[in-house]
Simulated scan of single mutants.
Amino acid sequence: MVAQIISFPEQKSSNKLAVSFRFLLSLYAIVPLCLLVLWLDSFGLDHAIRDMLPSSPSHFLLFQILFGTPHIIASNLLLLSHDEYLNAFKRKLMAMTLFIMVFFGIGSLFIPYRGLYIITACWTVYHVLKQQHGIAKAVCRLPNWAFYLQLWVSVSAGIFIYMGIFLKNSLEPGQAALVLEIASVLTAGLMISTLVCLRYVPSRFGLYFLWANTLLVVSSWYVYSQQYYFLAILMPRLVHDITAYSFYVTHDVNRHGEQAQNNLFKAAAAVRLPIWLVLPLLSFVLTYLLQAYGDDLVNLLLQTLFSTQIYKAVTLGLLGYLALMHYYTEAFVWASGSPLRRYIRFSGI
């Protein structure tokens, strides 16, 4: 969510709920907690926790149900359930859908799978870190050159950390070592750039946010280098996803709190489901159903009707499409002047 830089346009006085910057900063507490787990496991439990955890978060169904996919589904539901938003962005949505079909559909016939995977990985890392740096700029007040220096060094380091984790089983030992070395150099560069940027941050609260984003990447690199791959992905994933939900819930409460304005929230009101719970609950339920049963159900129908099957039609095809749309739409749906932005205000600076 909110992949663009946060600004402060005129906000509706009727907005009762606010996105709290102090709450968003508190999410980074996952970083020292994960480091504490690593140190306790390394020095007290002989790596028992590392051996118990899956080698990749993608191998753990519960992780996929709790992180990543739910907020992607939630962001798409937010757009699809409001005719006003669909009408405002329909040309962009149609153009992006066509691009995805051509590039990832037809392109997959010519571009190697690893190439497509790396492209998607780069976009994923950029999306996650652009959100956090965009939010931080509102309180750090960095000049543009300093902001983009921090952003691109963070993204570059994050990409190599991500590839080192998710491609480790397909990399030769020398290749894996090279990926780690590049990630290490870029992480050191991020620390240096942060020290350079300190002088431009006007407030202590801004310094906290600046260091929070830096240490998020640095800690992910350190945990990755110690082969705690699950924890390395958990830290940025949790911060990113809960940050996204804070925007979605704030929007829903401010728009539908007094009177439901679409069929989804009218149905929720009929069963007395709290407004703030509608999108999170629905997105988690849909994630579970799609991840656990989606592929089997689609293949059962295809086998019955057409005597054929499609490999991971839901978990790779549908959810992959929704993820790419999420990365794209979040770059503009929360921008100043967007119809969604009218229902967001901020507090806690």
Rank of each mutant, 00 (worst) to 15 (best):
F209V: 07
Y245R: 04
V196N: 02
P202E: 03
W276L: 05
P202N: 08
L238H: 00
R141G: 10
V278E: 03
H251I: 14
I182F: 00
F230M: 07
Q227M: 10
L178W: 13
Y224M: 08
L234E: 03
T250K: 01
A244R: 00
Q259K: 15
P202F: 10
A270M: 01
L167Y: 11
C140N: 08
S225M: 08
P236N: 04
D241R: 05
L231T: 07
L142H: 14
T187M: 07
C197W: 01
Y148C: 07
T214V: 13
I165V: 15
V185R: 02
L186W: 04
L195G: 13
P280T: 05
A146Y: 06
P202Y: 06
V185C: 10
N263A: 15
S246H: 11
T214R: 06
L186D: 02
I275L: 04
L149I: 02
F160D: 04
C197E: 06
G206F: 12
T194H: 03
P202H: 09
V253S: 07
V249E: 06
H251V: 02
V278T: 10
M191W: 10
N213A: 01
F209L: 14
V201E: 00
L281P: 02
F265V: 05
A177E: 15
Y162L: 08
L186Y: 03
L149W: 12
V185Y: 14
W221K: 07
S203G: 03
H240Q: 07
C140Q: 10
W152D: 08
S219E: 09
A176P: 02
L279P: 00
M191G: 11
L215H: 03
C140H: 01
G257D: 05
F166V: 15
Y162S: 00
W211G: 12
A177I: 04
G164A: 11
V218Y: 10
F166R: 15
E172W: 11
N144F: 00
A212E: 05
N144A: 09
G189T: 02
E258N: 13
M191V: 15
V196F: 11
Y200E: 01
L167M: 15
S246L: 05
M235I: 15
A267C: 08
D252M: 08
S170E: 14
V196Y: 06
L198M: 11
A267G: 01
F205Y: 08
S154D: 11
L282K: 06
V278H: 08
I182H: 02
Y248P: 06
A212V: 02
Y208M: 13
M235L: 13
P173C: 08
L190P: 13
A270S: 11
Y200F: 12
Y228A: 00
L216W: 00
E258T: 14
S246N: 05
I242Q: 08
L167Q: 14
T194I: 03
S220F: 06
I275E: 07
Y228E: 07
P274M: 00
P143F: 14
Q175W: 13
Q227H: 15
E181T: 12
L234S: 04
M163W: 10
E172R: 11
Q150M: 15
L273S: 05
E172L: 12
H251E: 01
A183R: 01
Y148W: 14
H256M: 11
S193H: 09
I275D: 01
G206N: 13
